[in-house]
């Protein structure tokens, strides 16, 4: 039993399970998954579908945080990527043309890579602190997105593009499939190669890493490029899902949700050890919370406060120090200490 509770993914997984079960009380049909027209439908599928962009961004953020950095510009990158893709598609004579959509996607992702390179160079070459370096793009990026869209919301009508964020493949939402592929790819990239170890070394002790000959600069640049790449894909998903590019609001504050997901998943903001599976759980917890707020009809004016309360509780439960304190307090009042430890 203690072996299970000591696993580092135990608490995120437990919290997610509790949240899902809580939904079941409010919405008895919550766990139902239906097959309509060969597509899977249901609340759980919705969580995965709407959570996919956050999962992607959080995966990229995990790499950056593992190096001891942070990437605040992912929300802006989401907006830029979506804006560029949509404006290219909108300019085409035939929006349904697959070739045109592929060009748009490629250019948008290419631009995202450039943005990541910019962040990476600012941090690794120029030596600006990550929070400031990425703050530049966080603020400026929205402006760039506005420039691309001429300050308009560009709506498009392109079936191939809608596939990315809103349609289904083999019965599954395509976005979820992308998230699965990126997660698997990241896991293979970091754990099958030595990339994960070297990133953790750099994040754990930068000076010691330098003295064993790790070329940290390249790794740092790589982490920021990867983060921006993930954000670029997320930007395509989000704009595809709403069939429009909104430079102002696409991906707004999503960087904060992503950071939260990483932290809930058990990766320290100080850098070092990271957990990709933990990050995915963290992102799902946040998405489940958002979904819960909509389905249970929490009044809009208390949504943010409600979210804050739940997030605070989640963070406290995650903290070993807090758990120790909470359980210790209860102990004297209970006759049998062992039983007092069963979570209420």
């Amino acid at each position: 039993m203690t072996a299970i509770t000591k696993h580092r993914l135990f608490w995120p997984a437990a919290i997610l399970a509790v949240m899902l079960l809580a939904n079941l009380i409010f919405t008895p049909t919550f766990f139902r998954i239906e097959l309509k027209n060969g597509h899977l439908y249901g609340s759980l599928i919705d969580i995965l579908l709407y959570g996919a962009p956050l999962i992607l961004i959080a995966l990229g953020m995990t790499m950056v945080i593992a190096t001891g950095g942070i990437d605040l510009s992912v929300g802006a990158t989401v907006a830029i990527s979506g804006a560029l893709a949509c404006s290219i598609i909108a300019d085409q004579p035939d929006q349904e043309a697959v070739g045109g959509v592929l060009t748009a996607v490629a250019l948008a992702l290419g631009l995202s890579l450039v943005l990541g390179l910019w962040n990476g160079l600012l941090v690794a070459r120029v030596g600006i602190q990550p929070i400031i370096a990425t703050l530049i793009l966080m603020v400026a990026g929205r402006g760039v997105a506005q420039l691309i869209t001429d300050g308009q919301i560009i709506t498009i009508n392109s079936a191939p593009y809608e596939l990315i964020g809103g349609d289904y493949l083999f019965g599954f939402p395509f976005a979820v499939l992308i998230a699965v592929v990126v997660f698997t790819g990241t896991a293979v990239l970091t754990r099958r190669t030595a990339l994960g170890l070297l990133l953790e070394a750099v994040g754990g002790n930068a000076e010691a890493s330098r003295l064993v000959g790790i070329r940290a600069r390249r790794l740092l640049v790589l982490a920021y490029v990867f983060s921006a790449f993930c954000a670029g894909i997320a930007g395509l998903m989000i704009s595809s899902n709403i069939r429009a590019a909104d430079g102002n609001n696409a991906g707004l504050w999503i960087e904060l949700d992503a950071i939260l997901a990483v932290v809930i998943g058990g990766t320290s903001l100080m850098g070092g050890r990271f957990s990709l599976a933990g990050t995915v759980l963290g992102a799902l917890i946040i998405q489940t919370l958002s979904t819960t707020i909509y389905t249970t009809g929490v009044p809009p004016q208390v949504t943010l406060v409600f979210k804050a309360v739940v997030v605070t509780a989640v963070c406290l439960i995650q903290s070993p120090a807090f758990r120790a304190k909470a359980f210790r307090r209860r102990r004297p009042s209970a006759p049998a200490p062992a039983e007092a430890e069963v979570p209420a």
Partner: peptide, 29 residues
């Protein structure tokens, strides 16, 4: 502590670190 060991990594990871850094991340042991 500050220049040698990477304390949160395991003993094994610390031992292979220099060799792995020399091989580069694409050629894991």
């Amino acid at each position: 502590k500050t220049e040698g060991l990477i304390e949160e990594l395991t003993v094994g990871e610390n031992i292979v670190l220099a060799l792995q850094a020399a091989r580069g991340w694409l050629r894991p042991l």
